[in-house]
């Protein structure tokens, strides 16, 4: 029996870089809870540790103190490669797509890495492209040949490809114009409210914070 609805729980987490001084923390003593079906915004100024927090949540780094629980399991005790390829989808500000691959290849690569069993991966990729508002004709285009907004959509489609429970996005609208930003926000809202995902957005955009179900403020620790 689950004690609560939290899909992700950050408990007294602190992080200090290995080359930092003893008392110099990038983030300190943070405790947040995240539930499925909601959009969360984590707001903070530059240097407040947004990226650090994102890397901790996405399992790219391990926290120095405290613990992060996914589905009540401590990330310290689970295989983080498995976690990243199955349970959490990460959308980066710079998209982090592979430029030598086409749109559909980028999405399919994620499915391959996760090892998810899908009969027709190409069809699934087209379906995901439709979800994020990309036409079928983009499937075979190299990602460098499409606009920033479109690349961001591809990145979101990729993060959804293996059906993770959490989507975490780093400044997903940082490089985009206002109209595109609204589109992207819309996609995230649908993912949370319709598809039941837990969507966490690290941002300093007021628009994003305005549409979020809950906003966490990250204080500067320096």
């Amino acid at each position: 029996m689950k004690k609560n609805n939290n899909i992700l729980s950050i408990q007294n987490v602190s992080y200090r870089y290995s080359d930092a001084e003893k008392d110099e923390y990038a983030i300190r003593n943070i405790s947040y809870n995240f539930e499925s079906g909601k959009v969360y915004a984590i707001r903070g100024k530059s240097g407040s540790g947004k990226t650090t927090l994102l890397s901790l949540i996405s399992g790219l780094e391990k926290c120095s103190e405290g613990s992060i629980l996914f589905d009540e399991k401590d990330l310290k005790n689970i295989n983080l490669d498995e976690y990243r390829s199955h349970d959490i989808g990460v959308v980066f500000q710079s998209y982090n797509l592979l430029p030598f691959m086409s749109v559909s290849e980028n999405i399919i690569l994620s499915m391959d890495v996760s090892g998810i069993k899908i009969d027709n991966k190409k069809a699934r990729a087209l379906e995901l492209m439709k979800t994020v508002g990309l036409k079928d004709s983009y499937a075979n285009r190299k990602v460098l040949k499409i606009s920033g907004g479109e690349q961001q959509r591809v990145a979101i489609a990729r993060s959804l490809s293996y059906d993770p429970k959490i989507i975490i996005a780093d400044e997903p609208t940082g490089n985009l114009d206002k109209e595109t930003e609204e589109d992207i926000i819309d996609i995230f809202k649908k993912l949370a409210h319709i598809n039941g995902k837990c969507v966490i957005i690290v941002t300093h955009s007021p628009n994003v914070c305005a549409m979020a179900d809950k906003v966490y403020d990250l204080k500067t620790n320096k």
Binding site: D81, R84, F92, S110, V113, R158
Partner: peptide, 12 residues
């Protein structure tokens, strides 16, 4: 490329 593959969960 290595970074991207690692972030999407490809093991070392």
């Amino acid at each position: 490329e290595i970074g991207v593959l690692r972030t999407i969960g490809m093991s070392k």
